[in-house]
């Protein structure tokens, strides 16, 4: 009886660390990073449909290897492909849009048992625009997550600046989400995300919707279906990675 009781206590109280995807969200960056010398191939596919009150549709692919430099710092070397169309479906553009480098630094121990419930992560990226040769894109995010029990809340304060010698265009890209652990490796939640243009209100959009993340062994997936709140009809995004 005592052994059975002991067994139950251990099974119920054993910590279930939340290895459920590098990000639990579709549009928000996560606060987990690779272990030192870890390597992962990561892919995103994202869409925005009927943006800006027009029929503008955009699909993008982000693909790149990630390398764990230390237990708290990882580097990514992404390339981005983009497909865009507006009112006339015959006038579409599919192009190799950007490449660059980004760093993600977790400002807390990489070990969930050592880290506090509050985990910040800083992300910076610099990318070259292939089609606009003198454009440099600078990106940044301050991501903070707070985990308690099966719940994880996250805020992602991001920005993007496209800089050329004569022009400068910037977006704020804030987002927030709440995720619930359903089982080991499986989470479900909701999130809100927006891109707020500082130059043109017409280019601002926002969406909110459900998300799902799943991890199995060396593979993880997360995705969200953003339902348009402002200047967009639907904005789905999926990410997945495989570690080596």
């Amino acid at each position: 009886m005592r052994i059975a009781l002991a067994f139950l206590v251990v099974v119920c109280c054993a910590p279930r660390l939340g290895f459920a995807g590098r990000s639990f969200y579709g549009w928000l960056y996560g606060t987990e990073v690779l272990p030192e010398r870890g390597i992962e191939l990561q892919t995103w596919i994202l869409e925005t449909n009927d943006r800006y009150g027009t029929h503008a549709k955009e699909s993008s692919i982000w693909w790149g290897p990630l390398i764990g430099v230390t237990d708290q710092l990882e580097l990514a070397l992404p390339i981005e492909l983009e497909w865009v169309t507006q009112d006339n479906p015959t006038r579409t553009l599919f192009t190799f849009r950007r490449f660059g480098i980004e760093a993600r630094y977790r400002l807390a121990s990489a070990d969930p048992a050592d880290a506090s419930r509050f985990v910040p992560l800083l992300r910076v990226a610099a990318k070259r625009d292939v089609s606009v040769r003198d454009d440099v894109r600078v990106e940044g995010d301050l991501v903070t997550s707070y985990e308690v029990g099966p719940f994880q809340a996250q805020i992602d304060l991001g920005f993007v600046s496209d800089i050329t010698p004569h022009t400068h265009h910037s977006d704020a890209r804030p987002g927030a989400g709440l995720s619930l652990r359903l089982a080991e490796g499986l989470r479900f939640g909701g999130e809100v995300y927006s891109e707020i243009s500082f130059e043109s209100r017409a280019e601002t959009w926002a969406a909110a919707g459900p998300d799902l993340s799943w991890t199995h062994g060396r593979f993880w997936f997360s995705g969200a279906v953003g339902i348009g709140l402002y200047h967009v009809k639907v904005a789905p995004r999926a990410m997945w990675g495989i570690a080596f």
């Binding site: 251990v10 054993a14 910590p15 660390l17 290895f19 690779l34 272990p35 030192e36 010398r37 870890g38 764990g68 237990d71 070990d111 969930p112 048992a113 050592d114």
Partner: peptide, 28 residues
Amino acid sequence: NVFSQSGARKFDLGSYPRGESKDKQFPQ
């Protein structure tokens, strides 16, 4: 690459070469 998947303490120290050392605390 030292790691543990035991319920009492899961961790992954990543890969590190000769001459390096990493440590872990065991709170349970």
